[in-house]
Design a protein around this nucleic acid. Sequence first.
DNA 1: TATGAATGAGTATTCATTCAT
DNA 2: GATGAATGAATACTCATTCAT
Lengths: 199, 199, 199, 199
Amino acid sequence: MTSESTSNSTKDIILERALEQYMEVGYKGLSMRNIAQKVGISATAIYRHYSNKEALFHQIIKTGFGTYTKYLMPALEADTAEKRFRQTLENALNFVLDHPKYFELIFVKSDTKDELANHDDLRKDSKISFDFYSARIHECIKEGVFKEDHPGEVSVLLLASFTGFFSLYIGGLLPRSEDEVRALYWRTVNRILNGISIT
Amino acid sequence: MTSESTSNSTKDIILERALEQYMEVGYKGLSMRNIAQKVGISATAIYRHYSNKEALFHQIIKTGFGTYTKYLMPALEADTAEKRFRQTLENALNFVLDHPKYFELIFVKSDTKDELANHDDLRKDSKISFDFYSARIHECIKEGVFKEDHPGEVSVLLLASFTGFFSLYIGGLLPRSEDEVRALYWRTVNRILNGISIT
Amino acid sequence: MTSESTSNSTKDIILERALEQYMEVGYKGLSMRNIAQKVGISATAIYRHYSNKEALFHQIIKTGFGTYTKYLMPALEADTAEKRFRQTLENALNFVLDHPKYFELIFVKSDTKDELANHDDLRKDSKISFDFYSARIHECIKEGVFKEDHPGEVSVLLLASFTGFFSLYIGGLLPRSEDEVRALYWRTVNRILNGISIT
Amino acid sequence: MTSESTSNSTKDIILERALEQYMEVGYKGLSMRNIAQKVGISATAIYRHYSNKEALFHQIIKTGFGTYTKYLMPALEADTAEKRFRQTLENALNFVLDHPKYFELIFVKSDTKDELANHDDLRKDSKISFDFYSARIHECIKEGVFKEDHPGEVSVLLLASFTGFFSLYIGGLLPRSEDEVRALYWRTVNRILNGISIT
DNA sequence: TATGAATGAGTATTCATTCAT
DNA sequence: GATGAATGAATACTCATTCAT
């Protein structure tokens, strides 16, 4: 129960199966019946644990953001801004490789946006992870690791690049082997940091 | 409304409303009833124009790819590799600003991937636009506009960056004003080309 | 146009295709759309020729009875009761072999019974063919070809036997070759006439 | 209502009403809505008991064959081939009088043939009853009850006759009173066994 | 905690038919 | 004679949810 992917209670198993099914078919395709079948309980048993479909979905997103934050946070333990920044990139990569479905849920699925728009608590969770990223970049600029530049816009650039990179990975357009993806990731990071054009 | 995507036949109106609704709720949420209601015809009248829901969706995607390609192609008229590359970026930006829903459909929605997986004709359409992008980058490397580098990996970087940038825009995380987005886009392009770190 | 199975007018072609489709799927499965498609005209064009689905079906049955009667009648030309009886059996067999679908329509399909129940003209057509049969049997008893027996009950026996025989044939439970069926038919007729048990 | 086919569970009631409706309108005309209405439950409640329309129809046929077999089997207890044969005829008659709709379903309806063609288990059920019939006839020939004759062809004759007789009964062409039909049945049986013609 | 029965709204789709052309 | 567009009713089926047990 303390590990982020293992759990034993029926409630947690429902959540896991629901996440899996959601990633396949989206919110509208998410079916209490189908989840129940995968869990091995009756459809109505779910209502013992979640008051309705939306409450269950809400919990899926909440768990996604929580897991993401758990991955990012340890980067704070490094002792320089650059190390904290690079560790954040490493942690984000690990998150995506470990939980591609959560990444997709958080960064890609539009259902999530709708849910964010309507629920303050989720918006707060979302802000935490975005801000973490920005803070690392601000640090780097402040400490001279990056060129003197507009911190918000550099954040945009990096966030866009990494989100895009992961999207390509999720979409199956990058090499499948984890080692290859890791290596390509860091080469891509370096290209972005150093630029690709001649002058 | 004055843009080139407007048309008057019932068939085209259905297509437009279907696209709109698809972007809100995905394939599973796409409802023939609902489309019909928005168009102002009976639910079954749609079948006069599209044989079924999937045929309608297929046409949505096909039109999306077709429109995208129409935006990209004119870049070939420029007379240097770099100009063709920059014009391609410009055209892609215009496409996203003019047709954000088509962008989302093509680059983000997973339903589209399923459809691509099952239909050769769509896969061909998809390949055309991806290859166009790659070809521009290869040219630039070959002609010394970019550093000597692995062309495929530079493609990955650029594709990831722009896809990510547009995703942020679509997701509402960038300034709304078109002028501001355009300016930010080009500053971001330049940062990627030139790098952001000091050495 | 004078032959019972060939015709050229659209009206007749519709009738033929409708009969074919009816035999496959029954009245409820009979579809104006589907008939039209087989004929090669639009669904609504049928209404130029038949005022609605029931009128079309009515004509199918009427044609079926008419054709059956046309097969039976020539038996009257034979010069003895027994010859007329045997010729009637021969003609009925020919009708079934030539038009198995009409046989099925007339003797098996319950939709036909419904239609008969509601339409006097069809009931009259039906009576003509049944009476023809009975009349041949009455003749045979009267002229001593058959044992002195209850004519109505002998009719029942013969009608049951031949209807049943044809049903087995239609149902695919008898040999397929026409020659074999013909031979088996006559052996069966003789067994019925002569009995099968020892005493 | 006091007969052995009545039962009280919703599942069984659905089956009975479905059978009734099927006999009126055939498979295509069989409507889940309509069955539900007759049972007095909502249209969708049926799916709690039968996974879909075909599963329900399948069960109808299966029950029909099962019932028929239950009627025939006790004939085996008689102690001579002739008695077993005559008892089989008696049992078949009882089956038809008790369950005319099942008879029609099994021997007449073409939908059943389609279903048989596609489902091994039903085909097996069907074979059991046909073989039972044949076996009784073979016995009779072997034991000299019938003339030395081709057993398969005698089977055809008898099967055809009785199927045809019952068809006439079902079709309303025979006397309605059960006693009269029983008497006519046995007179017809005797006529078939003994022949009707003079020589 | 869990289940089975049931419901009512909603889904895609087919159909006979009408109407304007 | 024929068509294409459209309609409204009907069909099988799925779904979230409630309730009694």
